[in-house]
Structure formats: structure tokens, C-alpha cells
Computed example of a mutant assay.
Amino acid sequence: MKLLNTLLAGAALAIGLGGMAHAEDKTKVGFVYVGPVGDFGWSYEHDQGRQAVEKAFGDKVETVFVESVPEGADSERVMTQMALDGADLIFTTSFGYMDPTINVAAKFPNVKFEHATGYKRAENVSTYSARFYEGRTVIGHIAGHMTETNTIGYIASFPIPEVIRGINSAYLAAKKVNPDVKMKIVWVYTWFDPGKEADAASALIDQGADIIMQHTDSPAAMTIAEEKGIYAFGQASDMKQFGPNARLSSIIDDWAPYYIARTKAVMDGTWVSTDTWDGIKPGMVEIGEFSDKIPADVQASATAIKEALEAGTMHSFTGPLNKQDGTAWLAEGETADDGTLAGMNFYVEGVEGEIPN
């Protein structure tokens, strides 16, 4: 009996160790989101990328996520817990997670971190972002053609280079086809707050805007546009269901290929710290289907712009261009370098108002 018990105990231990080994074979991937996965915008699309990782690798991976994590100390605690829980790779998906990511990565050198839209890297920290400004060139072109009041409203989140680039590229594209166009900007100092976003949309409409753009994460502005009978563009995801009559097109973020590739690199042992900034050509930035409310000739010219950006024969920031104060920035035919774009802290000539501190 004693021998039998010993054999059974040994078998149980072997099974247990086998189970542990199987669990350890899985690559654990964590995601930290600034908004809820149901925002139908930024965090929603990142979570679509997470689900694509699960679909691509099946039982070889385990993914976890925490949503609605404020930027700052809260995010650092969430990242730390993910690392302690055995994550091999952690995607931190908002600009304000930059310093917390660097801080936590220093404490967990064997964990790989990927920070979205930031610029600080380390041996175990990569950065990645999308050239959203290319998409705003396309929708700015459409807006310049479609506005009847010559006033485009723009809901801006925080005064960081990513957001300022978007304002400038949309304005330049609209101005090129409509010299009388003006852009009204409301800063809401949040990524996701449907109430504030709705109020901002209403304020812009009161200022004469008949087209709304946004660099925030909820579909609130789209619903206001639908109610008021004006136009808007989807942000980060398509958002058509929230404004079937209002939506002209959308900028769609597709993170899935990147998330799959970086997860595979961890699995293969080939992961290295890199900086990735992809746009329309690699498909990280997609342009949503055009509404039939857009005239055929405008659809055609917008498609031509998209194809030129994709081919590299067009750049969203091509001179001659001046800064807002009238000082020269880009000479005739000169294009902006990535360093200037990455740190952009000025409006181009013609944009009204001041960038808040």
C-alpha cells in the first residue's frame, strides 16, 4: 500500500509538473487600455488587435487586459501587477503611459514592453505609432470640399505632437481645396469622456461648424452630428452605426498585424527594441468606406490622395509652408522630416487660436 501511494504521488507530481510546463510554454501578453474596450474608438481597436493575437496563436498564447486605466501612477501599478503575474510582453497603449512604462520596465528587464505613441525607449521597451496625420490629409480634403459654412470643427484631446500634427494636416488639406476654410478647435483634455465630447461638438456647431473631426475616443461627436444634421468622420474605428447619415468616412486603426508580429518575435526569441511609425502603406492606418453623400469627383480625388500617400509620391507636409506666426518652415517642394513631426509643437499658418500649455 505504501508503495502504491508513493507511485500515485509520483504520478500526480508528474502530471502537475507537466501541467505547469504546459502553462509555462504559453506566451503571456498583457494590454493596458486608457479607455473601455467598448468605447468603439481607440481602446476598442487595440482590443481587436489583442483578439487577433489570440486567433493567430491559439493555445500558444494567453492574453490579459485592463481597461480604463488612468495615465500616471495607476497605470504603473497595473503594469507592475501584469509583470508580477508572469506577462512576457506588455503593450501600453496611451501616450501618458510613457514614463510609467519606462519605470516598470527597469524593474523587470526580462519582460518586453511596447509603448504606443511615445518616444522613450529602453533595451526592453519598444515604441510604436501610426501616421494618423496621413488619414487626416484624406479626410481634410473631403471636408474642404463638403463644408458649406467653410467652418470645420475639431475636437482635440491633449496638446501633444500627435494631436497637433493631425490638426495641421487636416487643415492644410482642407485649405488646399477651399481657400476660405476655417478650423475651430475645442480642447477637452481627455481621451474618453462622452459628455465632454458631446458638449464640444455642440459648441463647435454653435460656432458655425457643419463638419466635425475629432481626436478623442468615443462616438459622442458622431451622435451629435447625426442629431444636428451635419457631417462627421469616424475616429480610430468606423463609427458608422452611430451616425449613418452623418458619417462621411473614417480613420481606422489596424493594430492586429503589428501585435501579431511582435508577439511572434517574443515567441521566437527575436524581439529587439525598435521604433515603428507606420501609415497608410503598411495598413496601420486605413480609410473607411466613403459615404455616397460625397460627390463622385471628390471620392475620386480623395482616393488619388490616399494612393499617392501609400506610394510615397505625396507627403502631408510639403512646402512652401509657414508656421502660424508667418516664419518660414518648409521651402518649395521640401517635406517635413520625422524628427520635426514627432515633436511638432506649432500650428501652421492659417490655423486660428493658440496651443494651450
Rank of each mutant, 00 (worst) to 15 (best):
K2Q: 13
L3A: 14
L4R: 14
T6S: 15
L8T: 14
A12Y: 15
L13K: 10
G16R: 09
M20H: 11
E24V: 12
V37E: 10
G41P: 00
S43Y: 12
E45Y: 11
H46M: 09
H46V: 07
R50T: 09
Q51G: 10
Q51C: 12
Q51P: 10
A52L: 07
V53S: 10
K55H: 07
K60W: 06
F65I: 12
V69H: 01
V69T: 11
G72R: 00
S75E: 13
S75G: 04
E76C: 05
E76L: 01
M79S: 04
M79K: 01
M79E: 08
D85T: 07
D85E: 15
G86P: 15
A87M: 15
L89P: 12
I90F: 07
I90E: 03
D99K: 15
T101P: 01
T101I: 04
I102Q: 10
F108G: 03
P109G: 14
E114H: 11
E114F: 08
H115R: 04
R121I: 15
R121Y: 09
A122M: 08
A122K: 12
E123V: 13
S126Y: 12
S126N: 13
T127M: 14
F132R: 04
Y133E: 07
T137E: 07
M146S: 02
M146T: 02
T149M: 11
I155L: 02
A156N: 01
F158E: 00
P159T: 05
V163Q: 01
V163L: 00
G166A: 07
Y171S: 06
L172Q: 06
A173I: 02
K175F: 01
D180L: 08
D180T: 06
W187C: 03
V188G: 02
G195C: 10
S202R: 15
L204Y: 11
L204S: 06
D206C: 05
Q207Y: 08
D210C: 04
I211L: 03
M213P: 02
H215W: 06
P219I: 01
A220S: 08
A220M: 02
A220Y: 04
A220D: 07
A221G: 15
M222P: 05
I224N: 09
I224G: 09
F233M: 00
G234P: 02
S237K: 08
S237D: 13
M239K: 08
N245V: 09
L248F: 04
L248A: 02
S249E: 06
S250K: 06
S250C: 03
I252K: 05
I252Y: 09
P257D: 09
Y258M: 11
K264I: 03
M267N: 11
D268A: 12
D275L: 08
T276H: 14
G279M: 00
K281P: 09
G283C: 09
V285A: 07
E289S: 14
S291Y: 02
D292C: 05
A296N: 09
D297N: 11
A304N: 08
K306E: 13
E307Q: 15
A308E: 13
A311L: 12
G312R: 10
S316P: 12
Q324R: 07
Q324P: 01
G326V: 03
A328Q: 14
G333W: 12
E334T: 04
T335N: 13
T335A: 13
A336H: 04
A342K: 01
M344H: 01
F346L: 06
V348H: 00
E349T: 05
E352I: 03
G353S: 08
E354K: 12
N357R: 12
N357Y: 11
